[in-house]
Design a protein around this nucleic acid. Structure first.
Length: 558
RNA sequence: GUCCCAGUAGCUCAGCUGGACAGAGCAACGGACUUCUAAUCCGUGGGUCGGGGGUUCGAAUCCCUCCUGGGACGCCA
């Protein structure tokens, strides 16, 4: 599906190319290869509805003044099929196109007709993309950073889906390795303590309060039966119990946040199935491994990384990186065309080596895309809230949703671009007033629903309505903005940037509110009422579809 | 020391694959509720786009350099 705006854009681009060819063939312009020009929407309204920089780009190769070229192009333009009212050469050589004011109203019936599917575009062409996000260690609860990752990852996945990709959402469970050993020692210490024995949680261990609760549950169930069991058996029992409980809590918190995964992938399974060993074998066969001081190294430097990386420690235990390579091998073997990981900024140092490993395995490293997300700073009462996972002092996702609500939380996380540090103001997010931008968009939706409720019947079918009655500036500006929705979806998907959608929806809501305050929808004029009902109904659809992409609800009443 | 991200209005941030006079929200100030929801609207003020060079017809945007803040540089994950 394609939006009206894009159609007009492409139509104009085609006409310009033909005009160039025509001018060249008549000898008015020298033969040049057509440059990569753009047909863009000017920022200034005075510059028309569309504009192109083609003439300026031709100036150098054609060795002519840009305005001369522009005039030659305009003279050869054939614009049949588009309601262009005026074409002007302006500024340093822009060609500006002015369309009939009502041109954009043609999009309204298409919005109503497509309804829930309005805005779907076919950027992905059905290709398969996997989005892996959050993937926090199942040794504790989710914190603010994980929450941002969840909101971002889920919205990116939703936007890609809407842009024509087949999307799989996936969570990688780090249920193996050093951290799990460490986790086991911490659990064991708490176990001893609860049974009245002296013990200390290791300094590098998990000190959170939630761990004590977990072990308490374990004690209630198993009592002291593991007290005299062999150490590894005791730790395994504790870890198994705790991982299960923690993972369930993580799933629950994410579900409550509106985030649903298609696949929960266990790191442990990679070790048990031999997948890690297989990945190592492949790299060895391909000549990317060597031994040094008893450890097995990956030649990451061959892929532009600063230093080589250990895959198997001298004690024989594979590193996290080795498992991650096996995991990515598995991803590509599953046939994904694109593999997207959402990582926190503290992992950015791993990007180059992971891409190197993908290349070493024989896959295209560009098929692996990593969105690096900057860290979250939490503010309460105007003060920075210090957080530390080790000490167990941090605000969890559950608490966040509890305190500020799911919609407010998700909105704030997707409002900023991923590579911008996020200052999360708890007081503002919690605020149920006009200071809080969250409700601005939802309120626009609710207002429209209220109008539609006011009528005893459904909104009229656009075919039965004279949309030409929509002549007010506020009406046309709103309709024009609605028509941008498909392109916004495409751009958001291209940039993996949900914050674009958040801002776009804010603009749509603003135009709706502005229209609402200057004109009444329901009037004595039945034909005008019908036309305006179509306009607001189309607005409702765009708002609702956009909110859904961000994981936000579209309330009918507020 | 090396690498990554950021530096744009009082605050928080868009804009950054070069385009025509730099935007939004909040905060400040002044207005609009007998009307389909005032969680709204209308208006006003507010900027050496961190500094300095360069490329270009044109630079917040690209290149170089310096400054500031955050992060990463482990046989941790």
């Amino acid at each position: 599906m394609k939006g009206l705006v894009q159609e007009v854009r492409e139509h104009l681009a085609g006409a310009l190319e033909r005009a160039l060819a025509s001018a060249v063939s008549r000898g008015l312009l020298p033969a040049v290869t057509p440059p990569a020009f753009v047909v863009e929407v000017p920022r200034e309204k005075e510059h028309g509805d569309f504009a192109t920089n083609l003439a300026m780009l031709l100036a150098r190769p054609a060795r002519l003044a840009p305005r001369k070229i522009a005039e030659a192009l305009v003279a050869h333009l054939d614009l049949t099929g588009i309601s262009v009212e005026k074409v002007e050469v302006a500024g340093p050589g822009f060609i500006n196109f002015y369309l009939a004011p009502h041109w954009v109203l043609a999009e309204l019936p298409r919005i109503i007709g497509a309804d829930h599917d309005y805005g779907r575009v076919n950027l992905g062409n059905g290709s398969r993309v996997q989005v892996e996000f959050v993937s926090a260690n199942p040794t504790g609860l989710l914190h603010m950073g994980n929450a941002r990752g969840a909101a971002l990852g889920d919205s990116i996945a939703a936007i890609l889906d809407f842009a024509g990709y087949r999307v799989t959402r996936e969570y990688y469970i780090n249920d193996a390795g050093n951290q799990i050993e460490n986790f086991g020692r911490s659990l064991e210490a708490r176990y001893f303590q609860l049974l009245g024995l002296p013990a200390q949680v290791p300094e590098e261990g998990y000190h959170g309060e939630d761990i004590i609760d977990t072990v308490r549950g374990f004690v209630e169930r198993f009592g002291d039966q593991y007290l005299h069991a062999p150490e590894d058996e005791r730790r395994r029992a504790l870890v198994d119990y705790a991982l299960k409980e923690k993972l369930a809590a993580i799933k629950k918190a994410l579900e409550d946040f509106g985030v649903h995964y298609d696949v929960w992938f266990s790191e442990k399974s990679l070790h048990e199935s031999g997948a890690v060993q297989e990945a190592i074998d492949i790299l060895r066969r391909r000549g990317y491994l060597y031994e040094y001081e008893g450890a097995l190294w990956f030649k990451a430097t061959e892929f532009g990384v600063e230093k080589d990386e250990v895959l198997v420690r001298s004690n024989g235990v594979p590193t996290y990186f080795a498992a991650d390579i096996a995991y990515h091998l598995d991803k590509f073997r599953r046939g994904f065309d694109r593999v997207i990981n959402i990582w926190g900024a503290d992992h950015h140092g791993h990007v180059a080596r992971m891409k190197g490993a993908v290349a070493a395995l024989g896959y295209n490293p560009h098929a692996l895309e990593i969105v690096i997300m900057q860290l979250v700073r939490l503010y309460r009462g105007g003060e920075l809230v210090r957080m530390s996972k080790r000490s167990g002092q941090f605000v969890t996702l559950e608490e966040l949703v509890e305190e500020v609500g799911r919609d407010a939380a998700r909105y704030f996380f997707v409002l900023r671009s991923a590579d911008s540090h996020l200052d999360f103001d708890l007081d503002l997010a919690k605020e149920q007033s006009n200071e809080n931008p969250v409700y601005y968009i939802q309120y626009a939706h609710a207002r429209i629903c209220s109008i539609l409720r006011q009528m005893d019947r459904e909104a009229p079918l656009p075919e039965q309505v004279d949309l030409g009655l929509l002549k007010e500036e506020a009406e046309l500006a709103l309709a024009r903005k609605l028509a941008d929705f498909p392109e916004e979806v495409a751009l958001g998907a291209k940039d993996l940037a949900p914050h674009r959608m958040a801002r776009y929806l804010h603009e749509v809501a603003g135009l709706l509110h502005s229209f609402y305050n200057s004109h009444r929808v329901i009037t004595g004029d039945e034909a005008l009422t019908a036309a305006r009902l179509v306009l607001v109904d189309a607005t409702r659809i765009v708002l609702r579809n956009g909110l859904r992409l961000l994981g936000l609800s579209a309330p009918e009443r507020m």
